[in-house]
Every structure is written in C-alpha cells, then in structure tokens.
Amino acid sequence: MALDKSPDMEGMTPAERAALYKQRAAALGIGKAPNTSGATAAPAKPAAPSPVAAPALPSTAVAERPGPAVPAKVAAAAAARREQVAAVAAREAAPSHKEQSERLVYVWPHLVTIEFMSAMLLLFSLVLVSVVLQAPLIGHANLDKTPNPSKAPWYFLNLQELLLHMHPALAGVIVPSVVLFGLIPAIPYIDRNTADVGKWFGTPKAVRISVFTFIYSTFVLIAEILFDELIGVKPLLKSIADATGQPWLVDPNPLGIGLLSMTNVIVPLTLMIAPIFLLLWLLKLIYKPDTIRDYMFALFTGFVAAFIVLTISGTFFRGQGMRLMWPWDPRQERVE
C-alpha cells in the first residue's frame, strides 16, 4: 500500500517519514470528503479515530475505506504508529511457553541455597568479629560530668556535623525529615521511565554523571566545612554588619523568628541548595543528560556523598569542643 513503509524510507528519521506519509496521504485524496467538489468540502471531522489508529488493522482500512473522510494527519499518524508496532513485534517476538519456562528457575534449591550461604557467611563473620573485638563500655553514666567531645552514634554524626553549621531545628529536624520523608519517597513519582529498570547504572551516561557528582559533592562539602571552620559564616557576616551598619545581618532572632536568621538559617540553607543547582547546570553543560533519570542519578549520588562525607567528618575529624582536627590529633581523646 502507498501508506506503508517503502524501501526509499530507509535511513530516514521518523519525523521525515511522518512528513512523507502526510504528503502521500494528501496525494491519495485521503482527508477530502468523498463525492463533493473541493470548493464545498468542509474539513471532515475524524469519525472515531480509534479504528484508524488501531495498529492491528490491515493497512487497507486506511486508504480504501469508504464512508467518512479521514484527515491526512490522522492517516499519517496511523501509518507511523503501524510502523512502530511492527518494529516492536519484529524486535521482541512473544516468548513461547517453553522459552518462558526456561527463563524461570525453581526457588528450591537455586535461591534458597544462595540465601542460606550468604546468611551463614554473614553470621560467621559477625561471630568472628564479636570474639576478636570488644564493644565499648566506658564508665557509669554521670549526668554531672559532660564528656568532651559528646557524640551521638555514628549514623547520626552527619546530623551532628550539620548542627555545627546552622540552626539546630534546620540541622537536626528539618533537613533529615525533608530528605527521609519528602525527597527520597518522591523519587519514583518524578522519575517514571522504566526503560533502565533492572540494570546497574542503566543509562549510557549514568556512571560518568554519578562519579562526577560524587567527586564534586565531596569537594564542595569539604570546602564548605573548611570555610566555616577557618573563616566562618558568623564572623564574616559580623564584619559585614559592622562595616555597613546593618545589625539585623547577625541577629539570631530577627522579628522574633529564629528561622529567619541570616547566620543560622538563610546563609547555611543557601550554601546547601546553591551547589545543587550549580551541579545540575554543570552537568547540563558537560554531559548533556538525556533524561530526568540522569539528573536523578546526580541528585541521589549527591545525597549519598553528603551522608558519607558528613559522617566521616563528624566521626573522625571532630575532637574536643567539636573543633576540626586530624584523626590522630591528641585532642581527639575524650575527657570529662
């Protein structure tokens, strides 16, 4: 048929082919109402477009159908759609029952063996570590003697590190809540394309983007920690406030609302969010991400990097007074 894929269409882009279909449909007179002169032909409304678009319909249905006229646009779209369906059918013939059966394996013994072996391996290594390494138990609790430094368990030291740089509500409650109950659960509703499901780093640029993001985030976080330790948001704003005569810049409670403080909230929040946008812009510039999934790799990797860097910093690089220091500094020792 005239509206099927013809040999001369090889090597054309789908858009070019769609244009050609449209031309041919017009040449065949599809789209003009039958038995009327051109002058009076009102643009015919597409009668139910569904039978036209239905891919299983033989192609004759479009060109030779008597009755209400089919607009050229619809006929062309149907042809393009037919071609797509044919391509999918050619690529992936439905697996036969036998083939499907061969893709499946019995859970007993295949999966249960793997599960059992991995569980035993983990148990033995944990028992081994438990025999060799003693868990800490220091002196009896004494609420009158504050150890210096006082630290939370390691998986909260990222938040404790954050706490050193901003308002406690922001560091201890708002940021972790927004991440754990807002951003992370929201991921699947934003990134819905299932093309890369089931493959590690499923898009062509995923690895490069993730590696770049991890390195970038690590550098930014270290730079920000060093900046706050060596220069400091508060001293910097203090000197600006003194020089310009704007005391509200360092007011911890402007208008009586702590969450409006420049030093505790606004500046730290900006320093958290601005590098994310800078990262997305850099990625757009360098890697030209193809899909939203590529950006999602970056955002999630940034979160992982932040979790790791802040945990390491809070655990190993904070000593007495929670000052920044090397892990081997003598002031790392806990005193009471």
Binding site: L137, G139, H140, A141, P153, F156, Q160, G172, V173
Partner: peptide, 22 residues
Amino acid sequence: LPWDQLAVWAVTVGTNMAGATP
C-alpha cells in the same frame, strides 16, 4: 541501654536535636 557515659551523652545529644523541632 548500657547506661554508661557513652550512652547517656549520645542520647542527650540526640534528644537535644529532637528538642529543636519547631
């Protein structure tokens, strides 16, 4: 639960963080 210095002061730090909830 071990009720040593490590335990109570870690929990003090943690609950102070939760105490900052707006």
